[in-house]
Write a protein that binds this DNA or RNA. Sequence first.
RNA 1: GGGCGUUUAGCUCAGUUGGCUAGAGCACUGCCCUUACAAGGCAGGGGUCGGCGGUUCGAGUCCGUCAACGCCCACCA
Length: 845
Amino acid sequence: MTRDIPENPGLEGLEAKWNALWEERGTYRFDRSKTRDEVFAIDTPPPTVSGSLHMGSVFGYVQTDSHARYRRMAGKEVFYPMGWDDNGLPTERRVQNHYGVTCDPTLPYDPDFSPPEAAHQPARAISRRNFIELCHILTAEDEKGFEGIWRTLGLSVDWSQTYATIDEHSRRTSQQGFLNNLKRGEAYSQEAPVLWDVDFRSAVAQAELEDRDRPGAYHKVAFRLTDGTPLYIETTRPELICSCVALVAHPDDSRYQHLFGTIAISPLFGVELPIVSHELADPEKGTGVAMICTFGDTTDVTWWRELQLPTRAVIQPDGRLQTPTPEWLAGNGAAAYTEIAGLYPNQARARMAEMLAVSGDLDGEPRPITHPVKFYEKGERPLEIITSRQWYIRNGGRDDDLRKDLLERGEQLHWVPDFMGVRYRHWVEGLNGDWLISRQRFFGVPIPVWYPVAGDGSVDYDNPIIPEPDQLPIDPTSQSPIGYDESQRSKPGGFVGDPDIMDTWATSSLTPQIAGHWLDDPDLWQRVFPMDMRPQGPEIIRTWLFSTTVRSHYEHGTLPWESATINGWILDPDRKKMSKSKGNVVTAQDLIEEHGAEAIRYWACNGRPGVDTAIDTGVMRIGRRLAIKILNASRFTLGLSEDLDASSITEPLDRSMLAALAMVIAQATTAFDGFDYSRALEVAERSFWEWTDDYLELVKSRAYGDGPASASAHAALQTALGSYLRLFAPFLPFVTEEVWSWWREGSVHRASWPTTAELADHLGDAEVMAVTSRVLTAARRAKSDAKVSMRAEVETLEVVADAATQDRLRLAEPDLIEAARAGSIEYREGETFAVRVELAPLPGD
RNA sequence: GGGCGUUUAGCUCAGUUGGCUAGAGCACUGCCCUUACAAGGCAGGGGUCGGCGGUUCGAGUCCGUCAACGCCCACCA
């Protein structure tokens, strides 16, 4: 025996051992000499770097890794990069909490500021540049931690192909992409009402909204017609009566036909308002008359735009009602306004209710209701709508032709599972505006433009000053455009920099271009794009998947990838969706330490594509047991003899076993080609347990002997083991690599995927193994029923079977007699298969 | 309010174009320390497939409908 097989092989230490060796040997290094058709490129989701890794991430990434490993073995050169999403608000929040700081852009840069050991209490305000430096420091630490976990889990990522969505390369790619959109007219800026988060003081895009049910109250309020007749409306936002610009009812509402075109006067404020008609007014809601404010909700925006109403905005970017009395109010109206000036909406609402009650314009008590209110998904207060200048990228929300094109892209994409494509379609069909990409935040990729300042000091937003490509990336708030210098910043005749940053999706929608080095490495780019696979979660179809599709459609006129594989949700052990707010998040680190990487991988790969899956430590234990079983079965097989040529496989039972294995290989391959890793694992696993439980037991006795029959068993065992190790390699990379190293040169992960062709010359009748197992099982059952050891002797085995089955059993008879410890086998002709077992008398009986 | 998904043994899940007495693992029960494996092996009990109604010679598997759960979307008066 020259093989170095441990006496008592175990799983401990395999992760560290093989990760070090894989790194040293460059096992997963991308070979960029391969051409596009030889490459399998994966657009890996860059995880949000946020301290601890969520089990939901582990789930999807491990599934993707199993597929990457399959493709690599199946002959593709796998382009498998890793990115970190450290751009944007989650990082800002984390920095604020971690260091106890807030960003105040008005402060000067402090070059001596160093990261505090502990969080400042209370929070300390620092400059934007200091703040951004902290963002970089913290994300760099977190990224190291994440990489460590991914390596422990055995992701076969090429770690030389990494990026961060805030790094220089990503910023340049993102800014160039934006400038290309701008040049082609796909990006534009416009002053318009936007949904606004008053805490973050930033605009928010449609894709980032969520509805939450909140308590509210209908206030029935009397407006007055010119003759003094009350006209009642119901509103949940009486504080906005001061910003009312019209009253509206449905054009077919007979109750109000006579009022269209006339005037109503607002209570307390005395503003004259036209009474108009519009189809969005719902006769069923309230009194059928609604007040139109600028702006209380998105319907107001629609009415305002379509009915060409004036703007009377009072809500400020900080969420308060403006302090100066609005110009459209005068006299008693102006006096009434002073009661609510400077208040937050909820405070103003209460005050208005009091004032309306006193003036007699409130009919009855406010009626409490629960209603859906729009929130920023990361926000804590309801969104307001304010008017501001923002940048947009056209996404079909305002253009039917473009919408049709993008829907067509969704049809072209191969969705796994296919029903996920419906979510894309519904999202695109439901878009109601273009993609708002500017954010009034600090840590992100700057909008890369400046604006000329005219002699009168006004800013010319319609003619932005564009940087040259070789200047990118730029920060227009600290760099000046070519032809200007810093002394001209914000001066008449000079320039101003756009102060905003881009939405995180405006950058991560370019992950194929970033990872594939679209701008700076055309040679690499043409080898990897369009990519093959986009794995991701279902919740970001509307954001990441869609936005990536939009950018690629514009930039390259193609889909960014051929297939999108959508993983399921992770549920906690009680089948509740895990979320930080529920406090039921289980971190990956703990589970990996407790169960080991192979167990976690097995659990993840057991989850069907796209199917919600609960964290289940029971499944993890099964995976661990499978890994240990592989070690032990390998030790048995490889301890028997040196390598034998497969031509030694002559015994019918051995050839039968290989015939069954060939079918398993075919099934697993078909499953993987359809992105169904879980099916591939399932068929391999079922087959492997049968192999160890039945085949190994049947041939054990023969294998311990000598001669050609023994050699046949050895060679068949080796051949089968070689197949099983490769079938399991995508799922259990450490244990399969360990066994492979006892035996073969090179990495199992660069070995070729098993094929039926390589077994073709050694196949027999698969039924021989099947019927022999049935007889063996019958013998075991008899012993179990008699409560005796499996080693107990059988006097006779009497098999009732048809002639064909008898013939098959005779082919394996010596093995069956040994395994069952039977004295003899007798056959009787019969249609129905049956086995009668007569146990030998026990010694002493 | 609309859409998508899920609902099969106590638990976690398979069941691919409808077809032999519905499968696996865990858990449970019994037996076995058999020289690959006792953090193991062998064997066994246990579901009529969410409800109702159809199509069919035959349905867990197709159609309709209802319900529960999850997710996504929806103009907040």
